[in-house]
Design a protein around this nucleic acid. Structure first.
Lengths: 278, 278
DNA sequence: TGCGACGATACCCGCACGGTATCGAGTACA
DNA sequence: TGTACTCGATACCGTGCGGGTATCGTCGCA
């Protein structure tokens, strides 16, 4: 239906397809399908150009009315549902602008909903989910998942964050054993032990306590300690990231309370999954 | 949307699913999907029963209006398209009531179209398609397909039609070689040679000329000749069908002129394909 | 007569919608 | 209180459809 509207406005399948963010062949097929469904030719196609048939002209106005009506319905339903709020937790390490674009797309889809974003420090991988501060967390594994539903979105390779003048910084890749005798950054008391263990390469480490990526970098610069980080983090001046081959990749995932799965949360899961799928 | 309407009327997923000719789980999922799409809960589910939320109540009336509007649109488009006729050719051998049910379903979907059925005798497997007498043929292979589009629907095993008192009639199965010295029924002059050859087991045969299944049976009774037929044809008194293992199965197919593929024809193809897929 | 434009066709792949089997929560009744 | 039943939810699977890329056929134009 929306496809038909655009084609009828453009009277040009190629341009219409562009406007619809799709390629031309599926659009042609979709229109043909619509035609077979209602049993009528809607467009006269000729290499010279595309024109509406009489039936197509009638459908054009009907379609406009129909879509208007549908929009109106959405609004009325939304207002009848009353105010709704969703709070999204993210790790404070994300300079990732994708999260903001995702939030915008979500606000666009649910204009009636209030969308809040809460940044959590590195000490809490659930971003306040267990504490009830957020409805859904866009974060990284691993952590205590009891009572949570989880959906993995991506897995990123990780590497060691080192001072650029560190002897190991010139290696193409490292193993955890190469870093065994270093000082590492640590997390505060009470941090989820799985989380802590993951970022310390499975060991219990000594080193500076940090709550944020920024602090971690400063710790690395100050003390010559080592920290694990994502490979694609932009390298701050004076710091180098070297891939560590025997670290499992860092899994980006969505987590929410299993028994608190309202439509707004599910919608966010869908949108985020689609976005990360590109 | 239609799913939602039915569920809202029944307030019972199981019954609603029955009314929708589907099983309950997909219906539940569809409703949940609708809820995530618009970001609102539409039903309060409890083991005690299902109730509409305020948002659901609003959507109910909007949905009714929307579907009404859509129906109206269909009617207006159809009438703008003007009168349309489609002529369907079938072989006169089909006692198959499925064809009539198919035609009814088609009329139901396209109330504005006039649907005609033309029966062709056995001499013309294209049922008048090449002669321009029909728009689409529901028939059997093989025949000259140049310029035609074809869609296979099914393949039926075939057998020899014999008098019940024929010695061969007591066999469980036959080979073409067993029938080599018999008289067979033939087709009139000018019949498509591939068609003729198929029903004669790949040979040029002697025997009575027939134009219809009824004639063929009478020829078998009168002259003791042999004819090929479908296995599942009901056996007339005094006649027996014995499977012939080295005959390729008879392929039921749709055929229409390749460059005359209007929406009504395509719609019939879709409907028939769905019907034969069961 | 060759070339460019553009819708149609052929083919492939991933997802979503349909199905069946099973679960689990809530309720009624012995 | 335990047991059986109801009914929506979940898990899992197969198939069809909607999306993609590559290529074709055809018409207008230089």
């Amino acid at each position: 239906m929306r496809y038909f509207l655009v084609v009828a406005e453009e009277l040009h399948f190629g341009r219409a397809a562009t406007r619809l963010h799709m390629s031309q062949p599926p659009l042609s097929r979709a229109i043909r399908q619509l035609e077979t469904e209602i049993g009528t030719t809607l467009f006269d196609r000729s290499p010279a150009g595309v024109a509406l048939t009489p039936a197509g002209t009638v459908l054009l106005e009907e379609a406009r009315a129909l879509l208007d009506r549908a929009d109106r319905a959405r609004l009325r339903v939304a207002s009848a549902a009353g105010a709704a709020t969703i709070t999204i937790g993210i790790l404070a390490d994300s300079t990732d602008p994708g999260v903001l674009r995702l939030a915008d797309a979500y606000r666009d889809r649910h204009p009636h909903a209030e969308v809040r974003i809460r940044e959590a420090d590195l000490a809490d991988p659930t971003c306040g989910l267990h504490a009830g501060l957020v409805d859904i967390a866009l974060t990284r594994a691993p952590f205590d998942e009891t009572g949570l539903a989880v959906r993995e979105l991506r897995a990123d390779p990780v590497g060691a964050l080192l001072r650029s003048d560190d002897p190991l910084a010139r290696h193409r890749q490292l193993k955890l054993a190469d870093l065994a005798d270093r000082r590492w950054f640590r997390f505060p008391e009470g941090t989820d032990p799985r989380w802590q263990s993951y970022w310390n390469g499975g060991e219990t480490r000594e080193g500076a306590v940090v709550r944020a990526v920024q602090e971690c970098r400063q710790a690395v610069l100050w003390n010559g300690t080592v920290g694990m980080t994502l490979l694609d983090h932009e390298t701050t001046t004076g710091l180098t990231v070297v891939p560590v081959t025997d670290m499992p990749p860092s899994r980006v995932l969505l987590a929410w309370k299993r028994h608190d799965s309202n439509p707004l949360i599910r919608s966010f899961v869908r949108l985020a999954a689609a976005a990360y799928r590109q």
